[in-house]
Design a protein around this nucleic acid. Structure first.
Lengths: 233, 233
DNA sequence: CGACTTCTTGATGTAACTCAATCCCGGTGG
DNA sequence: CCACCGGGATTGAGTTACATCAAGAAGTCG
């Protein structure tokens, strides 16, 4: 990670989409800004937790390894988002996950001790961070259930819907650079299976391919695949 | 739920295993205590969030439905534990999960508005609750990865190890009443598959059956199944 | 004792993983 | 400028883990 020489406005620091104005003054005092290249690993599973990060620019994938060649992408942190907060724990000081830049990005690092100190004197921040964790837990458990019971097709459909919702559309395609491999890791399936599923969805006129990117053409139909149709027997 | 007439000591209120002494005075003021019967639903997915609960006695399963006849058990709240806190959210006021008593139990209910008020004036509590959520998120994401990549045998092995760790041994068996159906929902597999897997584990001398309960006889071997053996190729 | 769950087992189906071969395309160097 | 190379994209075939279905056995409760 190269330390950035440019100055970035502190206004870009958010926890998820909730702005945290009480956080801003602190950041000015104690931040380090890094430039990271596409594919660069910012920290990895097992590393000692040294602090938390905010995204100034670019998208960061948060993922968890399995064996030597498999992983599961848990979340994508976008501009303004926080990451590395999964290192906060009452039990361990080791990151349970890795963070990797999906594209060239700029991130802001806050020392852990400093972050804790700030939290301890700033009730509103601690409260909001708690709610943020609560939201992430809900999301995580929803995905967990889907992983257990939903088919790959349903999971791909849902992932695409979420991605389009989150990143929007640009040049008639979902505005995120995400390799098929990453998409596969995101839905928890293999490259080939996801590939075939995408083809299927194209044939069924639910989505269309725009270069390497994807555009949803039939939201309703896609949503249909995410439903628990077996229950209507 | 029947309102309990007995008086319970407030000392039994914890968040997970972390005692929260600052919470105790509040509980005296504003608690309702309920007796719930085995199998009774305390609240269910989709209900409006009215508050959070603490377990005085018994085990409570926290689960999420899929379709009409499938579910995934996310967690089991034990004596002293909190549940219903998944209803806390910045976005919605609807429980994303259900809570059902695994056995006759006694729970303590705290009104949501009151809980929020307490959190807002009690920094230490908010901070601890935040850490508690962080821990739960870690655990949830670990399970998620396992669900995506681990075999049923590995997941059953891990579940049994965790259960024995958490509930201990009594009468030469893991000290929890958990039907095979619930165990299946806990590992995210079908009844039959889990049944066969248990048999396998007995044949391999990893576990032994004690009535309907299970005892681990070979921890090491069981742990072996939870490893990512494919990586050693 | 009979009805009713829960357990047990076998047979069968299938979604998804694995492995392998070929294809395609952009980049590189001669 | 074109031939060559390498890595991702694409497709096929085989295998496997797991779900599903079905049906009998064994508890268990009124």
């Amino acid at each position: 990670m190269k330390i950035s020489k440019k100055e970035y406005p502190t206004q870009n620091c958010y926890v998820s989409s909730n702005c945290l104005p009480e956080w801003l003054p602190a950041i000015n005092v104690n931040k380090k800004i890094y430039e990271v290249k596409k594919g660069e690993v910012i920290f990895k599973e097992g590393d000692e937790v040294t602090g938390v990060y905010f995204v100034y620019d670019g998208n960061i994938k948060v993922h968890k390894k399995w064996g030597s060649d498999k992983e599961l992408i848990l979340r994508i942190a976008t501009k303004g988002g926080i990451f590395g907060h999964r290192g906060l724990s009452s039990k361990s000081n080791i990151y349970p996950i890795s963070a990797t830049a999906l594209e060239n990005a700029t991130v802001c690092f806050i020392d852990l001790a400093f972050f804790y100190t700030t939290l301890k004197v700033n009730l509103d921040l601690a409260f909001k961070l708690m709610l943020f964790f609560a939201d992430e837990l809900q999301e995580s458990e929803r995905k967990m259930r889907n992983l257990a019971h939903m088919t790959v097709k349903g999971r791909v459909a849902q992932a695409l819907l979420q991605l389009q919702e989150k990143f929007g559309i640009k040049d008639r395609a979902i505005d995120i650079i995400l390799s098929r491999q990453d998409l596969a890791s995101y839905v928890g399936a293999t490259y080939e299976t996801v590939f075939r599923t995408i083809n299927e969805l194209v044939l069924e006129n639910c989505i269309s391919l725009v270069g390497k990117s994807i555009l949803i053409t039939d939201n309703k139909k896609l949503e249909g695949f995410t439903l628990q149709t077996e229950s209507v027997k």
